[in-house]
Design a protein around this nucleic acid. Sequence first.
DNA 1: CTGAAAGCGCTTACAG
DNA 2: CTGAAAGCGCTTACAG
Lengths: 342, 342
Amino acid sequence: MLVARSTAQAEDAHVVTVIDVARQAGVSSATVSRVLNGNTTVTAEMRERVTAAVKRLDFRPNPMAQGLRKGQTNTVALLVGDIAQTHFAELTMQLQAALEENGIDLLLYNLGHSAKRLAEFLVRCVSMRLRGVVVALSDNISRSAAPLFTNVEESGIRVVSIGQDLTRFGIPSIVHDERAAAQRSVSYLLAKGHTRIAYVGRIKGSAVGTERFRGYQSALVHAGAYREDLVWDKAFRYAAGRDAVTYALESGAQFTAVQAASDEIAMGALAALRDHGRSVPDDVSIIGFGDVQMGAYLRPSLTTLSSHPEMAARHVCSILTAGDDSAGAIILERALIKRESA
Amino acid sequence: MLVARSTAQAEDAHVVTVIDVARQAGVSSATVSRVLNGNTTVTAEMRERVTAAVKRLDFRPNPMAQGLRKGQTNTVALLVGDIAQTHFAELTMQLQAALEENGIDLLLYNLGHSAKRLAEFLVRCVSMRLRGVVVALSDNISRSAAPLFTNVEESGIRVVSIGQDLTRFGIPSIVHDERAAAQRSVSYLLAKGHTRIAYVGRIKGSAVGTERFRGYQSALVHAGAYREDLVWDKAFRYAAGRDAVTYALESGAQFTAVQAASDEIAMGALAALRDHGRSVPDDVSIIGFGDVQMGAYLRPSLTTLSSHPEMAARHVCSILTAGDDSAGAIILERALIKRESA
DNA sequence: CTGAAAGCGCTTACAG
DNA sequence: CTGAAAGCGCTTACAG
């Protein structure tokens, strides 16, 4: 029994091009291109013939050829601080989904908080003819990056920031109101009678973190309860919370509440408190930042400030796709999510 | 006072091409291309002149033009199950880093466990002329995807799987030995005297999860302690652990240990146990899977099975870059990391 | 060893 | 409204 092997595409993997489609439809490749690009100046009949041929041949235009000719790709680069951190991962997920809905591909660059890599990418990306670059960085960005951003934008690549306000560079930014959020949670703590409220996880190099800290600080200064010695700078992520609180506890610091700069830091702080026999929230109340999923499953569950990555991603996406080129800031509010820890 | 505005590139943003470099160096564009591509048949002098011109003009080749001409880009697509899950995020981070070292860009597609989207991408990607696609999926992959994979590979795109064994599709795979890992941890529990060991978070649609479950199962069957009623299928991520354990507890199930299908599930289980006044590990021992950072900061800290994303990423990267086209499996072992929870 | 020319697969002025 | 031709920016046979 003989069975025909399906060699057709296997043999040569002949890729079908506009030329093939044109031949099949009996038109020129220009016409094919026109219907592909939704150009209106095409007869209904031509359109139909082309559409049919495209379908029959299962034609898919080569994005590189398109990009080269049009001078622009359909891909956006995401520069992210640290994708291993949950909130960045969630943001990445949402952005990818939103872009995909618009037929845009996502190139991912995990910058790992390196200013050098940011600079390098900024010069490199112009030759890539990207559709846009979205910057999701919490780190301070030096004024010296300004010409790099300008250069990118002048090359026709749209830049959008998410998470950090970069409007001073002329970059439209979608941000949370970190300061108001921190004030909100500190006020809550104050209202509950706390007067010794520590801040754990201030990171000098973090622009976003600094905003949060300022909100904390101003709320406490306003209440006459700000104390420099209750502000702890330490390391990174979970370990930051654990180490700072451990150190504070062991050096006899007095405090009844802690505002953490992130949920991860809060989790680390919780562990340290627990390790030292302090009960949360009975001995110490604790509030996180960002409402990462995990917080709801901690015990005690974590009071925190909400986050809106999906909404942020939608905004980014519409700025990228719309002709809108205002360089303003869109500000999202963080709500206080009350759970057991405070 | 007049200040010259730096209009030079602002005006036209004239992009420099090989032609410009060739002119500057006094050679042909072919020669420029040759030195750029490390072609050896070039005089030292030519090479120097070109290099100098490249430097002076700060020339960067247009990747689209290169890709179009060479018939291959320098980018790899990562198809990931759910980047919001920490272990996928860590894997993504490691892979991006490893690829970047090799000058390869990473396109990210978060599949969200959709077989349909996998299929769609697999047909779409051949026109993209990718350098490769890496599949990081825990979901079962239907046999019907075989021709799609074949088609991709025949188009010259290299496919590599990470996390799931896809060698049956002829795809080289870097995997952890899930079965042995689960056996290892169950044996540990058995050795400690547990006889009623539950499994929480079996997900029927997960190929990787099934491997883990089988390891658990065979270890228990071997010990004569396997009980169908102690295997709980439920939902997803944290909630899976919490809901399954809550249900078990409330329906009076008897067990003294639980093996979770992931650290997240373990965390959810921990919360449920806590909510029901059970102490871990005194009343119930619990072991996670994957050693996500968070586990070390839980209280009690989480006993779990290790994971090796960096190593896996390196392997993927070398398969992608090397000419090596064996389609075998590379197997990584998971070690039992003993912490407080078991 | 080097250059002139062709061509990757599209799209877009330019004619008609 | 449609087609022939040029060209996006590279690389690679092909001559010499």
